[in-house]
Computed example of a mutant assay.
Amino acid sequence: MTETALSETAMLASLRDIRLPAEAPGGVVAELAATAGLAGLGAVLVVGLLRLLSNRRPVVQSARPIDRLAALNDKPEVERRVALLHLLRDHAPDRYAAIRGGLYRREGSVDLKALEAEVARLV
């Protein structure tokens, strides 16, 4: 450093900020590509987070099938039929596939007593 003081103009000239070029290399295309890339990355992160939060957890059924079958006795007929079909689907999928076609017929559904007997036999 020198011991002489800087003049006012020399001091102001040294305080001027750096001038960046108005156009960066690649121009508008590079800016658009960077923006699209960042938006895509953000979308992937949001979708991943939503998928993580919205996945259903498998229901852990602690009761044995026989206990679940015995618990159905006090339920209404419609709920009992649905629960029996779920038991049949879980434990005998081939038999469930055979009667699945008759579930939605207008003339009648699966007989409840026959369904109970079949589930008790298979489970």
Rank of each mutant, 00 (worst) to 15 (best):
T35V: 06
A22P: 00
S7P: 06
V119T: 05
V123N: 07
G27S: 01
V82S: 10
I99Q: 03
G26R: 06
D67N: 11
A43P: 10
R100E: 12
L69V: 08
A33P: 09
V47L: 15
Y96Q: 08
H91K: 04
K75N: 11
A13D: 13
T35W: 11
L6Y: 09
A33L: 15
V78H: 09
K113L: 07
L38F: 05
L87Y: 05
T9E: 15
L69T: 04
L103G: 05
L49A: 15
L72D: 11
L88S: 04
A120Y: 05
T2Q: 06
L20M: 03
L69W: 14
N55R: 13
L85Y: 00
V47R: 09
L32P: 01
I99Y: 00
L6W: 14
E8G: 01
I66P: 00
K113T: 13
G26P: 04
R81N: 08
V60T: 12
L41V: 14
L112S: 13
L85R: 01
L15Q: 10
A10N: 10
L32F: 07
A71G: 12
L45K: 04
E8N: 07
G26Y: 08
E118G: 09
L88W: 01
G101Y: 01
L53S: 06
G101E: 03
R57P: 02
A30R: 13
L72K: 09
L41N: 09
R51W: 14
G26F: 06
R89V: 00
R51S: 15
L103S: 03
G26A: 04
G101L: 00
T4Y: 11
L45Q: 07
L12Y: 02
R105P: 00
V110N: 01
E107Y: 00
D111M: 10
K75V: 14
K75H: 09
M1E: 09
T4W: 06
D94F: 04
Y96G: 04
L112Q: 11
L49K: 06
E8T: 05
P76F: 03
A63H: 07
L84W: 00
R16N: 06
A117N: 07
H91N: 09
A63G: 06
R100H: 11
V29C: 03
A92V: 08
Y104L: 02
R121S: 10
R64I: 04
R81A: 13
I66S: 13
R19Y: 02
V44S: 14
V28Q: 03
A13H: 07
V47I: 15
G42C: 14
P76R: 10
E79W: 02
L32M: 12
A117R: 05
P21F: 02
L103N: 04
G102E: 06
P93N: 12
V123A: 08
A24E: 05
S14I: 07
A39G: 07
E8A: 08
L122Y: 06
V59Q: 14
R57D: 02
Q61Y: 03
G37N: 14
A117Q: 08
H86T: 02
I66D: 12
A33Y: 09
L45F: 14
A70W: 05
N73H: 13
V44P: 03
R121Q: 12
V47F: 14
V123S: 11
R100Y: 05
A22G: 00
